[in-house]
Design a protein around this nucleic acid. Structure first.
Lengths: 247, 247
DNA sequence: CGAATGTCAGTTGTCTGACAACATCATCAA
DNA sequence: TTGATGATGTTGTCAGACAACTGACATTCG
């Protein structure tokens, strides 16, 4: 039986954040299934050596996620939705580079253009920029062998990346670059749709065989809740599919 | 300045649940925007006449939703994501009928075929059926005026719907039908991709102008965690887009 | 004068202990 | 047998306290 939280001093997160993780682990380890009851608050506070308010905040988060149900006077129970799991849902934020690798590709990224420009009103609004601010526009292809599997356009505030644009390597993960110079995106709001590639993109890059594209338009936010990137990612339909849970 | 929670006695929900709602309302009413600071815990506990632990549980929920972010020692601040909250993300389970209506369509559903058959191994597995069980296959078009906006194929266990198939009205919500005869689906696992409609579907229904389709393949589960339906929904790409949050 | 350090008030993070409200079950009395 | 009652275990809520962090200002030292 474990006692106390795992990474005593090393973990800078709040007790609640750690607890939340510990509780998820507990459910997994103890192989609790739908309908099973969680240990009582008394037992959990004793086991992890934390206070009831902290524990309750963590449990409340699991409850909001639909992992557990609470019945006043009885206890907390594993809900049926907890069993619904997909391996890496689209609702988990990660860099495009990582996502593509997970599909088993070892992509080669080709920069089509990199420029500094005045943002469209739509993009300025998405990035919460004032009227004078400028953006960096990055246009890339992701290739698997010689096949184009993605066409990507990214916008980041010019102020996020200091220095000359030509001095940087834009072939890697944009998130890594943002982390180094600014703030790493931690979450996003996204809209997905099925489209054909814009004709001029097809013509310019000889993408006549690209077929239907899975388009994700996404605004990425830092930990502090600031928008730090706007992306339009066109995924070759035949090369990608995305899973998620609905509840 | 309001004092205490609104619906004093009538509201049977927990204080935390009410608070969560009150806080959302507060943000709206006070027209708080990205970067603004929320009132302090001290002020909020005073205003709503509730304890700090209860308040903190509610705030933790808003935090998990990405509506606010906390800085230890400074306060709580409205996140940029709060402004573009998607009211109904794709991760919220609902019937196709309801979803389509939300897009502003008043669809007319046309049944192409309804039949009882032996399931493909893939479908039998998705519905956790034993080898002898049979399924109902329902093939439909959803029309807006005379335009086809969706092509849908649904599979449900034969045992879920008793009686003769011809005696039922299949033009409505399949979820409603399942609720009446069996168990209403409450959640699902889904996979989305961008495809073209299968050629034979295009030919048979004169859908040459359908364009790229947003395909959602979905296994729906009941409250008890039992699979009750398998669906393939092809959405006309130009007519639908789906939002969600990643974190 | 400038930079590092100390102090203080304000805010969030965490803990302790207590009581209320609800669910379950054993006990007891009619 | 059955209904009332109370004991016990559980979650819901409250009150107060202290710790840890932030920012601003004052102080000290070079």
């Amino acid at each position: 039986m474990e006692m106390g939280l795992r990474n005593g001093l090393r973990d800078k997160r709040t007790v609640v954040a750690q607890l939340r993780e510990e509780l998820s682990l507990l459910i997994e380890k103890e192989k609790l299934v739908t309908g099973d009851r969680l240990p009582t608050e008394l037992e959990l506070t004793g086991r992890f050596r934390i206070s009831r308010p902290a524990l309750r905040e963590a449990l409340k988060l699991l409850e909001q996620d639909g992992i557990i149900n609470v019945v006043h006077g009885k206890g907390r129970f594993i809900s049926a939705t907890a069993a619904l799991r997909v391996e890496r849902p689209i609702t988990c934020f990660e860099s495009v580079t990582d996502m593509v690798r997970r599909f088993g590709y070892q992509p080669n990224n080709k920069v089509l253009s990199i420029s500094e420009e005045e943002p469209d009103p739509e993009i300025a609004k998405a990035l919460a920029l004032n009227s004078s601010a400028r953006v960096i526009r990055l246009e890339r292809l992701r290739m698997q062998n010689d096949k184009v599997i993605m066409y990507c356009v990214d916008y980041v505030p010019r102020s996020a990346i200091p220095g000359r644009l030509d001095d940087l390597d834009w072939t890697g993960s944009l998130l890594d670059l943002l982390e180094k110079h600014y703030q790493r995106p931690k979450m996003s709001t996204a809209t997905a749709s099925a489209v054909m590639l814009p004709q001029h993109i097809v013509d310019r890059n000889n993408l006549h065989d690209f077929g239907p594209a899975f388009l994700i338009e996404e605004i990425a936010f830092s930990d502090a809740g600031l928008p730090v990137a706007y992306a339009q990612d066109y995924h070759r339909g035949s090369a990608f599919s995305f899973s998620f849970v609905r509840k």
